[in-house]
Design a protein around this nucleic acid. Structure first.
Lengths: 364, 364
DNA sequence: CGCAGAAATGTAAACGTTTACATTTTCTTA
DNA sequence: TAAGAAAATGTAAACGTTTACATTTCTGCG
């Protein structure tokens, strides 16, 4: 006869009721070890015993204490997501993708956004340590220093949208997408194509710019830099760029904005200037944010499957967590697809319009 | 002489290194209790001792094990956020507001989105139990059943955007905002004002509709229901509503969409139908999402400070957590402010146009 | 100097799991 | 039926903190 001394010792802190594994064990007439085994599956336990335990657990509405559990197994079943300064639909979409994938695997997600500088980011990472089994870090800013440090902090990390020199990472095929978009414009006869750049240190923005420039070189155009406007991924900066383009003396036949938000801004300011899109000038963007199809005219853009980005990032991380020994750094790339809508049409002048007036540029 | 038997017992699981509080104690030549006291402040400990401990902790790069900590103090310093199916900028903004407020108080946030039905929601809440000290639940769907159950689950909960009959909640002043918007339109001479409704069971949508109807009654118009179109808060449904309005025989002079996304859809379809906004018809929305100022024409709307919503919701929850004894349910309301942009102008006909043709309404 | 009280620190028992190892039960097989 | 192997279960030691209570050290005062 097994000695059934499952009587709980007197509690020190009598605050909360809290059904524990001991209560379930007592009720089912087994030991805590058996209850644990039943609840976690895997181990061998008699069918009948298992039923009893399950019944007791259900009856008592037992729910395991996760803190105790993770203290014991040294896992939290939680991953951390560290995002930069958040704005727009891009991030909610990323979180959504990760959330979905994570929940399917029984993981929770700890989110922390709005970290402009790398110090803030490291600070957050530190408070997350111990709380999470791994980290998904979105650091499109190309300042690599903080990322290096992350590696040293002995936690699996997957980088999103940044070109870490080592370690796992997943990025969008920005370069390829930009080139494909340029090809599309070229096929429509455009050769004088303006570009609205993104933030200078943003990895995505840089790659898109590289794709643009490479394509422009291929078109044997000389006016290269004059056709570029600066921007920072916000609608506002797109608006400013649009105005600049509207006022330029030798107007381009098409504008390629490095993201949709800026393209929307460009559309707004061209409309304000009375310039017809796409009749007088074509406009395209990048990302395919939800709003893109509802602006006037609907925006032709390069679609990025953001949710998939999140999903695959999580998959990568999960792999790193379950296989902790150092593996070769993996770098995945998410493809983009062209979405053609109403914001562009064939170039009115198939020949390049060689700056007829050469008027002085109006003051900014 | 205090007996310094701080020698750690042989570890069972020798996997990870992991500096513990014992290591720090040994290094500083004090007991673990003292280390704990120093690290958590509050208790009295000699200045000098404190310095030694801090130095040892820093030297060893000690970081406390949160699982052990929360097991001991029965707090996780984490709150859960449960969101419905996520789309758009609204949610990322809410999360942002909460995140900011939470981090300032040393709390982490566990996010879980995309819960269409109430079963999924309860399921998630269950897996979060023990992991979080409290819950912020966004359940704009008015099906109250699940919320009642939540209360029973002995965890502080604050509801966002829903009219729970009991318990803490924070909502937007939808009714007041809608009335204010109607007043604005009325001041411009509009009396034939169409309304694009939101989802039928959505609490926000209902309140906005109520505000609209109340105002319409005040204008002594008889055409009430004929001027309402159904919608579901998506751009797409706004687009459909816009088409319906464009085709209607006795066209309204203004359209009030229950949120900005739908207003954007309305603008797009009116543009497609060749109807000029605001010359021929005025359009207004609700929320003031970032895109609102960049559509053509820029959208007049009712601004909701979403980040503040999140911030105050967290404040409410924090209060409920630290003051666990039952308190009277609190219900806060976030004010809205009118933002006037280019999408509306005075009504072309100041007199009410009494349905000149009375043609049959076109098929839907 | 001695003593009371206050201040500082130490000891060890929780917190609720998991799991190595020990023990008991059940099953095979000769 | 007994022995041995395999399967099922139990025991108790971790996991790393916090904190009630005990103990030591200080301080001021008669």
């Amino acid at each position: 006869m097994p000695s059934r001394q499952n009587v709980r010792k007197a509690r020190r802190r009598t605050k909360t009721a809290g059904i524990t594994i001991h209560d379930v064990a007592a009720r089912a007439g087994v030991s805590v070890a058996t209850v644990s085994r039943v609840l976690n599956g895997k181990e061998l336990v008699r069918e009948e015993t298992s039923r009893h335990v399950l019944a007791a657990a259900k009856l008592l509405r037992y729910v395991p204490n996760v803190a105790a559990r993770s203290l014991s197994i040294r896992r939290s079943q939680t991953i951390g997501i560290v995002l930069p300064e958040v704005h727009g639909e891009f991030f909610s979409e990323v979180i959504r993708g990760i959330d979905l994938a994570a929940r399917a695997e029984g993981y929770h997600i700890l989110v922390s956004g709005s970290h402009s500088d790398s110090d803030r980011m490291l600070e957050v990472v530190d408070t997350m340590r111990g709380r999470v089994d791994g980290l998904l870090v979105m650091a499109p800013d190309v300042t690599l220093a903080p990322l290096q440090e992350l590696r040293a902090r002995d936690m699996p990390v997957v980088l999103l949208n940044s070109a870490g020199p080592s370690g796992d990472a997943i990025t969008i095929d920005n370069y390829g997408g930009a080139r494909a978009m340029m090809q599309h414009l070229h096929n429509l006869g455009h050769t004088r194509i303006a570009f609205v750049r993104g933030p200078q240190h943003n990895a995505d923005a840089r790659e898109r710019l590289r794709g643009y420039r490479h394509a422009m070189r291929g078109m044997a155009t000389r006016l290269l830099r004059a056709l570029e406007c600066s921007g920072d991924f916000t609608e506002e900066s797109g608006f400013a760029a649009g105005r600049q383009i509207a006022e330029s003396s030798s107007r381009p036949t098409a504008v390629f904005a490095a993201n949709d938000s800026m393209a929307v801004g460009v559309l707004a300011s061209l409309a304000a200037a009375g310039i017809k899109v796409p009749e007088e000038i074509s406009v395209v963007g990048f990302d395919d944010i939800p709003i893109a199809r509802y602006v006037a005219p609907p925006l032709t853009t390069m679609r990025v499957d953001i949710a998939e980005l999140g999903r695959r990032a999580f998959a990568l991380l999960l792999d790193a967590i379950s296989e902790p020994r150092a593996h070769a750094a993996r770098h995945e790339r998410v493809a983009t697809t062209l979405v053609v809508r109403g914001s562009c049409m064939p170039s009115p002048t198939t020949k390049v319009n060689k700056q007829p007036h050469r008027a002085a540029r109006p003051p900014k």
